[in-house]
């Protein structure tokens, strides 16, 4: 799922995506806002309010400077993960029949509603995440999380994943080349399975051993479990304004939900 948060091309120091207004906001504020949005939206259940939340996330897109086409395509990729569930839900949820397919399959009104609710929630949250957090480059995201007192282990995990995922991919490519150089052609036979198994196993073992060597090298340079986080973040007037507006918007969503549920 790394590509969803646009971890793919790491630009050390710079932000990912074009320079939209969001770019200037404090990363901590953006992470917190995205988290708050996710919590509120997963709590919503009335469809019109959920639709409004999704529209709000969509409306933020131009502010982020992300290219709309590829960003929406990434969102659709995420939908691929939940597609099977969305398709099955109408037929597996008990309730009032709404649609009868040839072959006796019955889609229920409740199931369709549930599927729509989940689809709206997931898309609104992922879009807001991409807009607010996906525009952070991984290193700044890591620093922001560390400043938000997330466990350092998790932050290190993120930073090292970003740093070494490319190394692992390059190692995999080179080993595959070396296998082809020795006339390896994958087929469906025991030799192929054993060889590919050994390739994967060896990559895991090597990654483990590499991590130990990296730790040794880091210790040689005085590593004690903390990575000094260099850039200092500043939470300014613009961030406060953003925070207040965002909180107001979330408040509106909640108020509408409450009103609609009462009315029903």
């Amino acid at each position: 799922m790394a590509h969803l948060l646009s971890l793919a091309p790491p630009h050390p120091g710079g932000a990912t995506g074009g320079p939209g207004p969001i770019h200037g906001l404090d990363p901590r504020g953006r992470v917190l806002a995205a988290a708050a949005f996710a919590v509120v939206v997963t709590g919503l259940s009335s469809l019109p309010v959920l639709a409004l939340a999704a529209v709000a996330a969509l409306a933020m897109l131009p502010l982020s400077g992300l290219p709309p086409g590829p960003t929406l395509r990434r969102m659709v990729m995420m939908d691929g993960f939940i597609l099977v569930m969305l398709v099955l839900l109408p037929f597996t949820t008990p309730g009032t029949p709404a649609l009868i397919l040839p072959g006796g399959l019955v889609a229920t009104r409740e199931g369709l509603r549930l599927a729509a609710e989940i689809a709206l929630t997931a898309n609104a949250v992922i879009l807001m995440l991409m807009v607010l957090v996906g525009t952070l480059d991984p290193v700044r995201l890591g620093h922001a999380l560390a400043r938000l007192r997330l466990p350092l282990r998790l932050v290190h995990l993120l930073l090292f994943t970003v740093r070494y995922i490319e190394v692992l991919r390059a190692e995999y490519d080179r080993t595959r080349q070396a296998m082809r150089a020795r006339a390896f052609r994958p087929g469906s036979n025991r030799h192929t399975w054993v060889s590919l198994g050994q390739l994967v196993g060896m990559m895991l073992v090597r990654a483990l051993e590499r991590s130990e060597r990296i730790l040794q090298a880091m210790k040689c340079r005085g590593f004690t479990g903390q990575i000094p986080l260099l850039d200092d973040l500043s939470f300014g007037a613009g961030d406060r304004l953003f925070g207040v507006l965002f909180a107001l918007a979330l408040g509106c969503l909640i108020a509408m939900e409450v009103a609609l549920v009462r009315a029903a």
Binding site: R174, T175, Q177, A178, A181, S195, Q198, L199, M202
Partner: peptide, 15 residues
Amino acid sequence: VGLVFQDPDDQLFCP
């Protein structure tokens, strides 16, 4: 045609 790679770590992958 056989190729011996510059970096042996690229080449050896079996246990």
